[in-house]
Design a protein around this nucleic acid. Structure first.
Lengths: 220, 220
DNA sequence: GCTAAAGGAGAATGTTATTCTTGTCTCGAC
DNA sequence: GTCGAGACAAGAATAACATTCTCCTTTAGC
């Protein structure tokens, strides 16, 4: 694999020099990456979809195509980065919001309803949790979605565990149940806001919560 | 809107003549459409995605691009047709499978677990219920998805209503609850089969059913 | 048989992502 | 202070598609 016989002594001083020389470059790179990210975020907010072109991102960030492909493997990676970011932020928000309540079950209710609201397609802007990209990703690379969901799943698992500990509910496998709750909240939010041609209005956050509450406690 | 003053008498005989002359054409058109549909279905099964090109569909169906665009508004419509078809078939299968059981709740269990299995990404072929296209559609045109879901929703609503009638469970708004159950089963199926980098194996059909069962009965 | 619509073959167009080319600039090494 | 390497800008080139268009040929109904 790495047979390099003409490399006798690992030059230590050289490494340090290189490292020093590298640090600055890394910083610059991160700034550039952030500029791409910001520009893309703006475009998504403005256009309401992820249909922007790479050109647009490049122009808005005042950088170059060359640079873009030097920092990202492609548009896909850019979107993936934004997606993970959004979910991590969402998890943080939920953790923050739930800290207000005292009772574990109440906390869980807040979490479910907040996640539901966050996942709902907003009137103006595009919900970052659920863009068309997120959907494609789910179908094409579910593993990456699973990874991105991790922060949220951790929050929900924690909440479910607390609820079980306090005896407010039971759930044999908290993480599994948390996963179900989370996904139910996120996905069912998608189909709301539809004019609903024939059948009545879509489900509400409260209905979702009640459904999940029943699900947590197990059939009975 | 429809002001056509130069159309004095609605020529009845003519209409019949046109209709007769039209029937055959309609049949031919339907055959061609079906050939496109079949070809596309094959390609999806083979490639596992909806990434086939229109060219491929045209070649496989031994027709022409011209003809394709004469019958479909675009690739989008072709996929939408396949999607609706698949969901309608799924609804029929579920109706069939549930007819075996006697107890309403048992029927519902069968329905949930079958829908879950149908929605799961199969090893070889692509689940028609949940292609990447279905995801994009959900994000871009939720109303069309809602329409396509209707047959399934009808089946589930019916099952929930029966379960409520028989006193096996309660549910204030059967259609709402049916919608939640259906979506939970379909969506949670998507994230299974993932190698699961860090956390344990994904949820099973049984777990989904238990979760839904609790949800149906309402929190308690 | 005649005519108009439908169909076939494939070229033309337009949009994007992605890669490649060329010249410029910056920054640390000496 | 200058040199050289790598980062970068600008944008041309490429490639993959969907969609449309053109020019014929076939066909179905009269």
């Amino acid at each position: 694999m790495n047979a390099v016989p003409a490399e006798p002594a690992p030059p230590a001083w050289r490494q340090r020099a290189v490292e020093r020389s590298t640090r600055a470059a890394k910083l610059r790179a991160e700034q550039r990456i952030q500029r791409f990210l910001d520009a893309a975020q703006e475009l998504i907010a403005e256009k309401g979809t992820t249909d922007f072109t790479v050109q647009e991102v490049v122009e808005r960030s005042k950088q170059s195509l060359r640079s873009f492909y030097q920092h990202f493997d492609g548009k896909h990676e850019l979107l993936l980065a934004l997606f993970e970011d959004a979910l991590a932020k969402s998890a943080a928000e939920i953790r923050e919001a739930t800290s207000a309540a005292k009772k574990p079950l109440e906390r869980l209710r807040i979490a479910v309803e907040l996640l539901y609201k966050q996942s709902q397609p907003r009137p103006g802007k595009q919900s970052p949790l659920f863009t068309d990209f997120a959907m494609q990703l789910l179908a094409a690379h579910p593993a990456q979605v699973a990874t991105a969901h991790m922060p949220l799943l951790d929050v929900f698992t924690e909440l479910v565990e607390k609820a079980v500990e306090s005896g407010d509910t039971r759930a044999a496998k908290p993480r599994r149940v948390a996963s179900l709750v989370m996904q139910t909240a996120m996905f069912t939010a998608q189909t709301t806001g539809v004019p609903a041609e024939s059948h009545a209005t879509a489900v509400t956050a409260e209905e979702v919560w009640e459904f999940c509450l029943g699900g947590i406690s197990g059939g009975s």
